[in-house]
Design a protein around this nucleic acid. Structure first.
Lengths: 206, 206
DNA sequence: CACTTTTACTGAACAACGTTCATTTGTCAA
DNA sequence: TTGACAAATGAACGTTGTTCAGTAAAAGTG
């Protein structure tokens, strides 16, 4: 029964070619330029053929979002090897910023554009490997709290605030043409230090 | 020559009706649902008529962005009466968050959607009253620095970091359906305190 | 090999979009 | 009443995502 297998293989191949073409368009021209006819041209098939592999444009975009989030995880994963929690938090933050800088269109796709966070709405938390990114950061904060380095806030809340602040920097960089920094690595680290410093001296305020 | 004036008045009126209809659509259904035909239906004119008042859809959207930013300034303005710089910074941050909460679609329009920051790219800084918002915050930080409350960072940089962090919170709230906070007022104030605490104890890190 | 069934694929079409333009309608001056 | 000018529009064009009847090729069957 090698025939059925070959067909499945070819089908899977074409599906991957569609995704590759779509990703190329998104990365080079942005999500709004992702049109079914452009994909069709790129893979040298009729537009209708795409609908034999994906239900609609949304499904293609959502798969790209999934892949994009996996890429972000890839940036952050090496930080897991760092023993010191605070140093690990800094490494995660650095990786997050680096991802935004080196793959701006991917960052846009998963966090700013039409399908931003779309995965989180539909699926169950437990079933989302994507959520590993947040748990990773929150878990590291928990270690810092357990070690007594940080206090006055839950690990989840601290992770949310740091994530939000970094997200703010990257989005401003990507959206605002007049954002003053050529390189957001420095303000990114400053922000991380600022938040950590605040968490360590939180008794100073209220 | 009352006739010419009446005509101008009617023309201006229709222009305002177009903008009002457009704003209503954006606020209730979001920017993607803003179509020329919907506006035409709302004002009971043909779609072509809109082009006698605006060059294209972009120009309408950009005017809404301008108006939206003016609304944000309106939220922040009362803080100017607060004498203490740090308290003023907190009031500005609070107002910023409040704007994001109470006018989410307007916030989306001016900071997240297609025309986000579009005004900043085209026009000159000096000619932008919109930039008053940032100068307001940066000037307040400068006062805090002059008073010795904050050190180790320029006022502009501090303003950028605080703004970015607040923007991060609001955008996560608006974009991510699973964002854990029903009310972002608390995390917004926490973020502000965190950044300020960090700025006041910056010597603790590097 | 011939015939049938299944699969892969596509051209043409639909509705909705932004936009344009020739044409019509309405209003004022002479 | 007529001529000029402004205001308004119906119909069209080229996009977009999407659907579907129909074709052509491949696989299964006698």
């Amino acid at each position: 029964m090698g025939i059925a297998e070959r067909r499945e293989r070819q089908k899977a191949e074409l599906r991957e070619r569609i995704l590759a073409a779509a990703k190329h368009i998104v990365v080079t021209e942005g999500l709004p330029e992702l049109t079914m006819r452009k994909i069709a041209d790129a893979i040298e098939y009729s537009p209708a053929t795409i609908y034999l592999h994906f239900q609609n444009r949304d499904e293609i975009a959502l798969q790209l979002v999934r892949d994009g989030f996996a890429a972000l995880i890839g940036y952050m994963a090496p930080a897991a090897a760092i023993p010191d929690p605070l140093a690990r938090v800094r490494a995660i933050a650095k990786a997050y910023i680096a991802f935004g800088v080196r793959e701006p269109e991917t960052y846009r796709l998963i966090f700013l554009d039409t399908y931003a966070w779309a995965l989180w709405e539909s699926t169950d938390e437990a079933k989302e490997p994507e959520n590993g990114a947040f748990s990773f950061l929150a878990g590291t904060f928990q270690e810092a709290i357990d070690a007594g380095s940080i206090h006055g806030m839950t690990a989840d809340r601290a992770a949310e605030l740091l994530w939000a602040s970094l997200h703010g920097i990257v989005s401003l960089k990507l959206s605002c043409a007049k954002y003053p920094f050529d390189d957001i690595a420095l303000p990114g680290e400053q922000m991380c230090d600022l938040v950590l410093a605040g968490l360590m001296h939180r008794h100073a305020i209220a």
